[in-house]
Amino acid sequence: MTDNDDDSLEQRRDALSAKLAARERSEAIETAKEKQSEESRKGMALGLKISSEFIAAIAVGAMLGYLIDRFVGTTPWGMIILLLLGFCAGVLNVLRAMGMVATPDPGVSRGDDPSHKR
Rank of each mutant, 00 (worst) to 15 (best):
T31D: 09
R12E: 09
L64G: 07
S37T: 10
G73I: 13
A97T: 15
E39G: 06
A56V: 14
A28I: 05
V101I: 10
K19Q: 13
R13D: 01
K35G: 09
A28G: 07
G73Q: 11
C88W: 11
L84R: 02
E39M: 05
E53P: 03
A21F: 11
A15L: 09
R23E: 14
M79I: 14
A32V: 02
S17F: 15
V91R: 09
T103P: 00
T31A: 11
L16E: 12
I29G: 07
A59M: 08
L64E: 02
G86K: 00
R96P: 02
T103A: 02
V94R: 01
L64F: 06
A102I: 03
M79F: 15
D69F: 08
A62T: 03
T31F: 04
Y66P: 01
K33S: 04
L20F: 12
G65F: 00
Q36N: 08
M100N: 12
M44N: 04
E53F: 15
P76R: 02
G78V: 00
I68G: 01
G73H: 12
L20R: 14
K42P: 01
S37A: 14
N93E: 14
L48T: 09
G61C: 06
I55T: 12
S37Q: 11
E39H: 06
G43C: 05
E38Y: 07
V91M: 13
R23K: 12
S52V: 08
R13N: 02
R12D: 13
M63C: 11
G99D: 03
K33F: 04
P76V: 01
T31M: 08
Q36S: 11
F54H: 01
A59G: 01
F71N: 10
T31H: 05
K35Q: 13
L85F: 04
C88R: 10
R23Q: 11
V94K: 02
L46A: 09
S52Q: 05
L48W: 10
Y66S: 05
A15S: 12
G47T: 02
E30R: 10
M98C: 08
L83P: 08
R23W: 08
I58N: 02
E53S: 10
A21K: 15
G61D: 03
L20E: 10
S37F: 10
L16I: 12
Q36K: 07
A89T: 05
R13A: 08
G90P: 00
N93K: 12
G65R: 01
R23F: 08
A22H: 12
V72I: 12
E38L: 09
A45W: 12
I81W: 01
R13E: 04
G86N: 02
L16R: 11
R23C: 08
A45F: 14
T75Y: 11
A97V: 14
S17N: 15
L48G: 10
A28P: 03
G61E: 03
S52K: 10
D14E: 06
L92D: 10
A97D: 15
F71H: 14
E34G: 05
F87A: 06
K35T: 12
N93V: 09
G99V: 02
M100R: 14
L83F: 15
T103W: 10
L95N: 01
E39D: 06
A89F: 04
R25H: 06
L92W: 13
A59C: 05
K19L: 12
E38T: 11
I50W: 01
